[in-house]
Design a protein around this nucleic acid. Sequence first.
RNA 1: GCGCUCAUAGCUUAGUGGUAAAGCCCCAGUCUGUGGAUCUGGUUACGAGGGUUCAAUUCCCUCUGGGCGCCCCA
Length: 411
Amino acid sequence: MSKKIGTESYKGVRDFFPQEQFIQDYIFFVWESTLESFGYEKYHASILEPTELYIAKSGEEIVNDQTYNFKDRGDRDVTLRPEMTPTVARMIAGKRRELSFPVRWFSIPNLFRYERPQRGRLREHWQLNADIFGIENIEAEAEMIQIAYKILRNFGLNDSQFEIRINDISHLAQTLKDAGLSEIQIHQYKKLLDKKDKIDNFDEQVRNLFGRPFYPDIKESESVEALLDKVRNRGISNISFSPNLVRGFDYYNGIVFEVFSTDPENNRSIFGGGRYDNLTSIFGEESVPAVGFGMGDVTTRDVLETYGLLPNYEFPAILSICPLNDAFYNYSSELAQDLRDSGISVIVDYSGKKIGDQITKAIKKGVQFIICIGEEEINRKKFTIKIVNKNKEKTVSLNKITKFVEKNISR
RNA sequence: GCGCUCAUAGCUUAGUGGUAAAGCCCCAGUCUGUGGAUCUGGUUACGAGGGUUCAAUUCCCUCUGGGCGCCCCA
């Protein structure tokens, strides 16, 4: 009398069925190969972290309301990591004296946040994180932007399909301070700036906030100018200064950047990061200069989908062997193994269905070649190979199968 | 946490105050060695609870679940 267990996945997380995993693998592959081409080393860490790691810099509200946290059996506060940056900062800080800087690392962790799912934001997502530690000058930012640009180009986007925006958070804060705002007012103003493009009464809200009109003159800082110059000279033109770009986290202390799709359907940034030189100091260590970024799989997939850049699914086996009946199973199995040893991926149909049905099924699965096995083939040692997408057949001898398949395979 | 919206078969969708239809999928048979097929047949659904009514899948309420937006943004 047990209650039926639902087959749906937990709210806001995803099951990756083979066709979706295929896309996921593709996205990860582009990420990894691009990062490795820049010499970044891959690392991993646990999804569990002590809660205190996030309270220090993320703020208690976010930790309490928007993370998964619980107490373990030893009464320790534990959190499912909502972001990777504190983790990597912890790892770097702990090994600070052993590492030779600069250090370039990347990882593709799954991250969790407790909130209502919507387009571009789920409760679990996978995010490419790349960080460079130990470089104080603007070359670190330039390299990050080059990587971002390269990743999107490798996904097949052209320059008009995305734009890179940069700002200088410290310069912004200084400008506001010079204009006479208090720390709290600066914080409030930054929040408004962050959604300036979304709301239509920005000026009115500013007036409500300060009791007077407030138009600070936010100019490009020297480092923004230098950075723009640098990356433009390196061939990246779809980048611009964006005075109202503000990143949510407090640990950024210099240049920040975001990448947006120019398709209005995807209104979330697909890529964001910046400089956070002081984060490692929360571990009581000397600060290590750092620049990093994150890029989520959900938004990436949305963007690729809108631009028609998702890869087509490929079934892993390229050849199916269809035995006429169970008397030919052993022979088929041995043939399959021989072909696998020669580098071809092969499945054998043990369904016991009739040959026509087996062929229909094999084609539907997506194999490219079909060999039927019966009396005739075994006696004559000749095999007829059906090339599915050409709807053609060819009879070859046993030792010619591999060669024939390799010659006619389509990718 | 708030708002809008939706809920019919495994999937995508019809439809009605008198318990429901189609396509695809799946299963079986047909065709009995090369049929991405044909033909035949079959399984399976109104998310849950309550109310109005002679009668609710349909109207109303609550709940649950999904989608989207807000908040927040890692």
